[in-house]
Design a protein around this nucleic acid. Structure first.
Lengths: 150, 150
DNA sequence: CTCCGTGCAAACTTTTTGCAACGGG
DNA sequence: CCCGTTGCAAAAAGTTTGCACGGAG
């Protein structure tokens, strides 16, 4: 099965290219970070990255994630707890939205059927007309309680 | 024109009742805070509250906002910068969504027409079926660039 | 040889907390 | 009086930065 940018084998090649464009290197640490983000399948925190085996100092984690964010490979998210979470950009993953646990701040990915995505896009278009913001994307979040906090 | 809970005159009375239920007092500082949130008309940060005339110490701002959050009068939001923003809950304001400036983290309120709200509710219902999260609400955010950052 | 990337420790920002004083009911 | 509330200062939590070393090109 194919979907744009979703095949793990390709992800590293794309990130390599993205970094190259920004005149930066795809080091071992950065590669491992990208692999951990692929494996996680949801936005993860710095402590979580350390738990699942990131073998680099905390400052390198911050710096590498910032670098990957600047080159367009990673997106940084703020949740309800004040711990940043990181995920691959949609260029490297599948278009998705998030479930947010209002108790612990955990985020999970959710993929919606095309019919719903069309409705959301339509809603965004309507909303854009009502504002002087220069709107370029939208986010849809489901807020609730995760399995752990339940 | 009437809409549930939206009349400023009533807001203070409702907050008073909410605090009373939580066995806490509606002090002058808290009342001023609620009035500032009404006037702001969008989620504001602690520094912004100080700029617009909140006359209490920073620690009291944090504590009073936490108290108001616990009793259901205020909602705390995380944005892209790592500064918390506060707004009145929808019980005290109008149902709305947010515009998010990806450059500075500023949030603005936006009210969508009922037709769009129905589509969003439908999308949320569909999404809820796809997860083990106990979903109880949804958020729709328009991401873009605000007038100042433009 | 030259930089970029790294680890460590210190600095910085935002938020929380301890403590003593204040004040309304 | 009693106990919730406040201000101040210190502490805590998360993130960023300075610096010196090491390794890749």
């Amino acid at each position: 099965m194919f979907y744009a940018g979703g095949m793990n084998n390709d992800v590293h090649a794309i990130v390599d290219e993205q970094l190259r464009r920004a005149r930066q290197r795809y080091t071992g640490g950065r590669r491992q970070l990208v692999q951990l983000l692929i494996d996680a399948g949801r936005p993860v925190t710095i402590p979580e990255l350390q738990e699942i085996g990131a073998r680099q100092s905390q400052s390198s984690l911050y710096r590498n994630l910032a670098t990957l964010e600047q080159c367009g490979a990673v997106r940084r998210l703020a949740s309800t707890d004040d711990v940043a979470r990181y995920e691959l950009t949609e260029e490297l993953s599948e278009h998705h939205h998030h479930l947010l646990c209002s108790s612990c701040g955990r985020l999970e990915d959710v993929v919606l059927p095309p019919r719903i995505e069309r409705a959301l896009a339509e809603a965004a278009e309507e909303a854009r007309r009502q504002t002087d913001f220069d709107v370029d994307s939208h986010r849809f979040e489901l807020v609730g309680t995760c399995a752990t906090c339940n």
